[in-house]
């Protein structure tokens, strides 16, 4: 039973991280206002949302299974308060930070019509912090965190997010950037 919880904890963590990676890249694509191949913009927005929600579900599995697993030595306090854990407190603390951010982003996204665009946007920016923190947690805390296959995959994910962020900061990022620049020239 404990073995199963341990395996579930590790696997769900990896899946959650993968989904978060995809969600960040999709979120940047949605922000650009461009459709993707056959996917129209509103479908992309829905895919971004659903993948992010799925990532949170797997994050819940990850934390829940490790809480129940005595081997993991995870206390309820560690789930909320970072850097006070028994085992690798720093790397585990990063996971706690990522969890707190993920919860904040998910809640404000689901309630955004009530909260208004300001709060929603301000909190949503934290996604850019969430992803590297979660990745560092995976590398530093994960059993396979420093294994070759994981580092390779992590590097690929880092490349994808990094490229998306660089594109996000470029002048022609917004779909209508050119006509807008021309009008204001």
């Amino acid at each position: 039973m404990n073995e199963a919880l341990w395996a579930l904890g590790r696997a769900s963590g990896a899946v959650s991280l993968g989904l978060f990676t995809l969600s960040v890249v999709l979120g940047i694509l949605v922000r650009s206002g461009r459709p993707l191949l056959v996917l129209p913009r509103f479908s992309l927005a829905l895919v971004h949302r659903n993948i992010a929600l799925l990532a949170v579900v797997f994050l819940g599995l990850h934390v829940g299974s490790l809480l129940l697993d005595p081997l993991a030595q995870l206390r309820a306090l560690d789930v909320v308060v970072p850097f006070v854990g028994e085992f690798k407190p720093f790397w585990q603390g990063l996971g706690t930070v990522a969890l707190d951010l993920a919860v904040a982003i998910a809640v404000t996204s689901l309630l955004r019509r009530r909260l208004g665009p300001r709060v929603f946007r301000a909190v949503h920016w934290a996604s850019y912090a969430l992803w590297p923190v979660a990745m560092a947690h995976a590398v530093g805390n994960g059993t396979d965190g420093t294994s070759g296959w994981f580092l390779g995959t992590a590097l690929a994910a880092f490349g994808a997010v990094g490229a998306a962020v660089l594109w996000r900061m470029s002048a022609g990022f917004i779909e209508t950037a050119r006509s807008r620049q021309e009008s204001r020239a």
Binding site: G33, P35, R41, F42, A45, I174, T176, S179, R180
Partner: peptide, 17 residues
């Protein structure tokens, strides 16, 4: 541009989207 996709008969996009 999401609304113009969902309501193509009612909305089009201007020069700036």
């Amino acid at each position: 541009g999401l609304c113009t996709e969902l309501l193509p008969d009612l909305l089009v996009r201007d020069d700036w989207g």
